[in-house]
Amino acid sequence: MLRQLEKLSLEADGRYASTEELEFLKNYLAAAEQRISAYEKIRDAEEKILNQVEQQLRAKSPYIFRKGNQDYSAVCRRDRKHVLRLAAAAMLFADLDALRDGFLLWYRTIIKAFKDEKVAQVTYQVLPQAVNQVLSGEEAPLMQPVMALTQSILGE
């Protein structure tokens, strides 16, 4: 949204923006209230969502956060929290490009560096369901593309 706005203001610098170019603003506007309320719900339910994901992951594999003798559940939780917040912001601003370029592509290399691909795969399968539970039927579709992008990059 921000990038589209900037692009529009740049391109329309020497001329007026056409009616079609103003469409995206109208489209964004039509769902903006839902975006804000979805964002606020995720913000307020952050702990609940994270707990639920953690429970489900442990149910699938009790030792999922262990590597050798080390327990990494705190680190994993911190990272999941980070992903959730950035995903919510990307939904709010309707800016998936920034999420991909500014976070996901980098984070994928970190997951690979620590050989955490399997945990990531399960995590980003479970996360969308946990998020959907706190959202209304109208809000969930706004979060869906963000979750799909996250899953495709981090959980492939």
């Binding site: 921000l2 706005l5 903006a32 804000i36 606020e40 917040r85 709010l92 601003f93 800016d95 920034a98």
Partner: peptide, 28 residues
């Protein structure tokens, strides 16, 4: 733009607070 940009920057390290979302509501 500047306000939005500012918001995207603050909302990067933490969730945006309700009052920070107000300008977006007003604009919308």
């Amino acid at each position: 733009f500047r306000q939005l940009n500012h918001l995207t920057v603050v909302a990067d390290g933490r969730y945006a607070r309700p009052e920070e979302l107000n300008f977006l509501r007003d604009y919308l």
